[in-house]
Design a protein around this nucleic acid. Structure first.
Lengths: 238, 238
DNA sequence: CCAAAAGTGTTCAGCTTACACCCATGA
DNA sequence: TCATGGGTGTAAGCTGAACACTTTTGG
């Protein structure tokens, strides 16, 4: 059987089955004003026009799921090389009242200071505090909850926190971020001790004085060293 | 806008986009001869006829993703109420050379002694040792690897192991299972201590003498007690 | 000089790990 | 009676949690 015949046979076989719209929805996290937020927008199209929803779009025939997620993220934020991970697929029949749509959710971690806020606002998106965006369409609230659960699990065992901060950050900043993620206070001595003991931060000889008179030393996550440690069996743990 | 008009508008809006075949593939784990295995079959249809693959099928228009996974599992095994969890969705464009197909993978944990082996064999399926089934079609090897990773993470923090054993089992049996899952030996005193300290096993006054002359006491996982503990903030941990 | 945030060590409890011997029984 | 797998306790080291004071400096 040559390739063309092969394709024909396949199409005949496959054509007994239904094809379905596949969407990607993104839970886009950002750390703003010492709070963990996600980007949402008000739908200007049916179904559920006027309601709030996550940022999403349909998967095109010439792109993979990951590509679709990157495209949707890029269109809204203009950012590339952002932390992006697939989360879960939602497939209830009536989840979208308009049509049968399966949605694959992704969550992203943005450095908000890289963001062109005008560009984002032009798309009608806005930052919503975690825990204050409970009125999303369809099953989007489930998606947010699952994303939060995943983020909390991952942030403990992988160096994800850094994705939400500027490349140079202070340890108190990182601690405040973790407190926002886990919604609880950490002891600053223990936090610092454990963090620095992992030896994956490079201390810079510059201080950030924006939040105190004394100033706090800036650090940078050393990804290369982290990767070297990984190969030796080291595990990130905060 | 009434409901019919609404639907028409939606269809017009959605119809700009592509619909895609959506499949479900299952990684079905079983514990047999003290080894962790998965069910695979030899494809008797194109593409990749004659090659080994996971058990899968297409999602129908009248069923959710979860329903499709249950159906596929039921058709092969005749079993219901089996542990089944969605794993990951695979969406590379050329992953299935026949057509554009997105696959949502699920992993299942079977009690093999509940299984009608003739029924399974009639479908051409067979048990394959983990680590000896590296020659699967498409991205099925990736799926197996991801399933194993998930199983290993979950089995430590959730009472999953019991899903792979008979309702009544001995502690040495459970330990051998965990050793098969993690591919390493555990200290039997520590294993037993930690396990029993969680207080979720009910000790029966019967011994299983199938593996030793002395016999080992049978236990049963007490799901109700476990759930009560869960609500009190208890966490399973082995 | 004072308010406000940054930075620093020690102690204790609980958990994890390592480790070796007796028990029960069928053959 | 002996070979085989089942069952048990303890000590040492490590890790996580709790806890309070000094330092720096801009205003």
């Amino acid at each position: 059987m040559n390739s063309t015949e092969q394709k024909k046979t396949n199409q005949k076989y496959y054509s007994k089955f239904t094809r379905i719209y596949v969407a990607v929805d993104c839970i886009i996290f950002g750390f703003l004003n010492n709070e963990l937020k996600i980007l949402i927008l008000t739908r200007d199209f049916e179904p559920a026009m006027g309601k709030s929803s996550l940022i999403g779009g349909f998967v095109r025939k010439d792109e993979s799921l990951d590509d679709a997620a990157e495209r949707i993220l890029y269109d809204l934020t203009g950012l590339e090389n952002v932390f992006l991970e697939q989360l879960y697929s939602y497939g209830k029949i009536e989840r979208d009242p308009g049509e049968r749509v399966i949605s694959v959710s992704y969550y992203a971690l943005l450095k908000v200071q890289d963001l062109d806020h005008d560009h984002v606002e032009k798309h009608g998106a806005r930052w919503c505090n975690i825990g204050e965006c409970n009125e999303l369409v369809f099953d989007h609230n489930d998606m947010v909850e699952r994303a939060l659960t995943r983020l909390r699990r991952r942030a403990k065992n992988q160096p994800l926190g850094f994705e939400l901060l500027p490349r140079k950050f202070t340890i108190p900043q990182l601690q405040v971020l973790y407190e926002a993620i886990y919604q609880k206070k950490f002891d600053n001595r223990n936090f610092r001790k454990k963090l620095l003991a992992m030896n994956v931060l490079e201390k810079l000889e510059i201080k950030d004085k924006s939040t105190s008179k004394k100033g706090a030393y800036l650090y940078r996550f050393d990804k290369k060293r982290y990767n070297r440690f990984l190969e030796e069996g080291f595990l990130f743990d905060l």
